[in-house]
């Protein structure tokens, strides 16, 4: 049975790497948005350092929204999602596998890019470590909560803007705690509590989101 889930895993991974353009575009968007800020607000290092955490996090949320649709769209359109739902596999687990693949192909490259971004915005090493920790805990949360909204809007044509409308308000607490952790790191203060809160939200999402996503996919299949 478990070989079936690894089959889904391998298939999704292969498919993702075949569509390299779709993987790269959100990352290019992220780099472009971040590099717009020094041009827009001026190159003074202290200002860039001050707004840096917020800029990187906002850009990360926006770019992940761009790539989010891929999560179920192709499978929905070619009918393989329906096959998976009828196959007798546990839909919650299938969904969990799909989210893991999505996180691997969209968030891990973002993590790899993060040193470059923090260099652009003159962040210190302490700030960068804090940023990396918040991204490590925060990006799975984005993938999981985002998947609920993607599941709901997958059958809708032109769901892209709607997805942003639904998701951005929900990501606000994440943004607040993540940027505050990096700000604390900049002041040499402990930021463990912020990380703990993000981790708590992540655990909450791990516990409940597979059911919500499975339900929303069923709603979309009608």
């Amino acid at each position: 049975m478990s070989s079936l889930y690894t089959g889904v895993f391998k298939r999704d991974l292969t498919l993702a790497f075949r569509q390299k353009a779709e993987l790269l575009q959100p990352l290019m968007f992220l780099v472009l948005v971040v590099s717009l800020f020094p041009i827009g607000v001026g190159p003074a290092p202290e200002i860039l350092q001050m707004i840096g955490p917020g800029v990187i996090w906002v850009a990360a949320i926006l770019s992940s929204l761009l790539g989010m649709e891929r999560l179920f769209r192709d499978d929905f359109n070619d009918g393989s999602l329906e096959q998976l739902m009828l196959s007798g596999l546990n839909l919650n687990l299938v969904v969990a596998v799909k989210i893991t693949v999505h996180w691997l192909v969209s968030a891990v490259p973002l993590l790899l890019l993060s040193p470059l971004l923090s260099m652009f915005l003159h962040m210190t090493v302490d700030m960068y470590i804090a940023l990396l920790m918040t991204l490590l805990l925060g990006t799975p949360l984005i993938s999981m909560i985002g998947a609920i909204a993607v599941g709901l809007t997958v059958g809708v044509s032109r769901g892209g803007v709607l997805l942003a409308l639904l998701l951005i308000p929900i990501f606000i607490p994440l943004l607040i705690f993540a940027t505050s952790a990096v700000d604390s790191a900049a002041l040499q203060l402990p930021y463990f509590s912020q990380l703990a809160i993000i981790a708590a939200m992540l655990l909450l999402a791990v516990a409940f989101s597979p059911f919500a996503i499975a339900y929303s996919l069923k709603v979309s299949q009608n």
Partner: peptide, 13 residues
Amino acid sequence: KAAGVMALVGVVN
């Protein structure tokens, strides 16, 4: 149903 799921996600938030 779809809006209901979103309302529930919102109320947790």
